[in-house]
Amino acid sequence: MLVVEGVTKIYPGRRGRPDVAALKGVSLTVGRRESVGLVGESGSGKTTLTRCILGLERPTAGRILVDGKDIATLPAAEMQRLRSRVQIVFQDPYASLNPRMTAHDIVAEPMIIHRDTLGLDARRRTDRVAELLDLVGLGAQHLHRYPHEFSGGQRQRIGIARALAVNPELIVLDEPTSALDVSVQAQVLNLLHDLQQRFSLGYLFISHDLGVIRYVCDRVSLIYRGEIVEEGPAEALFAGPRSEYGRMLLGAMPDPDPDRSPFR
C-alpha cells in the first residue's frame, strides 16, 4: 500500500556549510499486512524518510504513493483520511508525549481528530482508551496519569496505544525500542509482534539493529548514507547478504542464538 519512489531529500546547508543530502533516490514498498524492515546506522536518513512519509517534510525529488496516489498532490480531505491509516511510533518516548496531557488524553486525541471517520462520542472514546491501554499492557489505573509518572517502557506503550487508536493499516516504527532499557526492549518488541499478528498490521520497522528486524520482518532494506544498498526477503539477507554493507552488518551481529531471542 505504501510505495516510496526515488525519494531524495536535501537539507540546505546553514551558515555557508554544504547542503546535506539525507536521502538519495530511496525506493521501497510496503504491501498490505506486510512487515518491512529498514536498517541503517545512525544518520543514514531513516528518520528523514519517516518524516517524508508522514508528510511532515516535502521530498526534494521523488514521490510517495499510498494506494497509488501521490500524497503530495492529495486534496486536504483525502490527506486527512490517509493520516488516520498511517500512524507512527517515535523513537524517543520521553519526547513524543505531551507532558501536559494525561495518558487518556494522549490516546484519545487521534480519535478526536478523526471523529468524522470513527464516529465515537466522548464516552465511547474513553472506553476505547481503556481498552487500548489494556491491549498494550497498561491497566485502567494509569488512565489519568501524566507522562512523567511512567517509565520509558510504559511511555512507549502509550505511544503504541496512540498509534493503534484509529485502526491504522500501516504503522511506521522509528526505532521504537532503541531508547529503552535493554531489559524492557524485548517486552516491547514482543508486544509489537503480537499486535501485528492480531490486527494484521503493516509495519515499516526501522532499526539500526538487524537482530531486532529478524524476528519481525518479512522483507528488509538496508540503507547506507541515504541510499538503499540491499533489498530482499529477510531470510535471503540473513542467508547471504549481497552488499558489502550487509556483510558488514551481519558480521557485527552476535551469533544467532535461539535462547537469546526475545521471541522464545
Partner: peptide, 26 residues
C-alpha cells in the same frame, strides 16, 4: 519542534488545536 507537536501534526491536528492543546499549555 518538539516531537509531540510533530506527532500531533502527523495525526492531522489543526493549527488551533496544536497551538491551544500542545503548545500553549506547555
Amino acid at each position: 519542534e518538539e516531537v509531540y507537536v510533530q506527532a500531533a501534526r502527523a495525526l492531522g491536528a489543526s493549527a488551533p488545536r496544536i497551538l491551544f492543546r500542545h503548545i500553549l499549555p506547555n
